[in-house]
Design a protein around this nucleic acid. Structure first.
Lengths: 238, 238
DNA sequence: GATACCATTTTGGGATACCAAATCGGTATG
DNA sequence: CATACCGATTTGGTATCCCAAAATGGTATC
């Protein structure tokens, strides 16, 4: 029996029995993506064990899974929260462009493209009063849901993985309201092209959107890297 | 102490200290890819434990990693060697086309494209007397090494993952000598376009090569699926 | 003969004990 | 004061142990 006070597990979601591994994985992922644990920080299995009240067996399993997601990395013998790596962010952007463009081409060629209306509604749920956190989430989900419509499991997974790896960086990016609005408009333009079944135009718009997004992201982080390091975040230069 | 005779571990490769997890992962992957364990077969942690002479902790770690590679899947509470899934093979082909074409475009646009000569030499190491197993390996490595030249870690990983998932299916595919020769010629044609820096032509040739390859693969397995099932291999129809 | 039911075994999930290597402190030496 | 050395501590890797759920197999019932 684990006698650690923190061992008082959170009540599992009603109806779902969550294994300890899933619990640790989910919570740890949340802390990493939410920057509650900074990029570059060292992790020890024992700390996680006591923090979440699970034994090392599920902790290890969760670490192995998060490693394949790219959120944590091995540091010699130990574990480290993956640092923000500007060169890597650039490569991810190239990768996601390839995958997302392929997906949107498929989607725009579907007979039934009505699925995009759900995505349009999702975009429209954001307005001036929407909290920043929500804009962030919708911005990620737009790309993931668009890829899901393609029906290709592997393209979807590629996009999801890429967005997960980009998530923390986008959260650190300094974005003014104008930038948010521009992204929103570009998203809508892409949807419009898909709606018309114009695969080429959708591909072109998406490609430009991702390239611009990448440029702004890398530039912003590059300019801010001193400040980010001051906050304890490991930022590896491009 | 594990008293099973099989527990006599193989001597680790000279100079390298291989953890039990890596050991189990590598050997199990080899058995799965080599079809020594058939698609669809059930796996129990205890069997693997005694088979490789490791305890359950590294066995479970290895299973978790192989799961993310798509070589094994959860079957309710237990583990199963991933079946051959024709629909999935089709989707993987679409995915790899997107990723490989992006990679070859990058490679063809490089200043220094001399890396392709190593790949050409690799192709040329195969002749009429080369064993089938070697043709198989070179056919996979061609695509992986071509992607590696792009310099993009994520495109490379995408190609490697896709080839891993396709590996068993390609091994089962009935390919006559003519088909092997045709693939060899197509590979060389792609390299020639890359060598000239003609990204568009390389992309077009690669795209056609993958599409044709996919068609032959799925057709062959579809036609043989009775025979494959008779050999105990789970084949899920498209 | 088919089926519902119960005891037994097996299995994966988790907790813990142990170990060797790596790390960290502190001390003695130059 | 810098540094080399050594013992205590920490950490990941592994082996085992326990448990509850699920699978299995035999049996009694209809």
């Amino acid at each position: 029996m684990n006698l650690n006070p923190a061992a008082v597990n959170a009540v599992p979601k009603s109806g779902t029995t969550m294994s300890q591994m899933q619990n640790v994985e989910r919570q740890l992922r949340g802390m990493i993506l939410g920057l509650e644990i900074g990029p570059g920080e060292r992790l020890t299995e024992r700390w996680i064990e006591s923090r979440f009240g699970a034994s090392r067996t599920p902790v290890r399993a969760a670490l192995l899974r998060l490693e394949t997601e790219g959120l944590i990395a091995r540091d010699g013998r130990g574990w480290t929260v993956a640092p923000i790596n500007l060169a890597e962010l650039g490569q991810i952007a190239v990768y996601r462009e390839a995958v997302e463009v392929a997906a949107v081409r498929l989607t725009a060629s579907l007979e039934d493209r009505s699925g995009i209306e759900v995505i349009a509604a999702m975009l429209d749920s954001c307005d001036a009063g929407t909290p920043r956190e929500e804009w962030h989430r919708v911005g990620l989900d737009f790309h993931i849901e668009l890829a899901r419509l393609s029906g290709n499991e592997f393209l979807l997974r590629g996009v999801r993985d890429a967005m997960t790896r980009l998530s923390r960086a986008r959260w650190l990016e300094v974005r003014d309201t104008a930038a948010l609005g521009r992204a929103w408009a570009e998203h809508h333009a892409i949807l419009a092209a898909v709606r018309k079944g114009d695969a080429e135009k959708a591909a072109r718009l998406l490609s430009a959107h991702i390239a611009g997004s990448r440029h702004r992201l890398v530039t912003s982080l590059h300019d801010d890297r001193r400040g980010l390091r001051a906050r304890g975040f490991a930022v590896v230069a491009a």
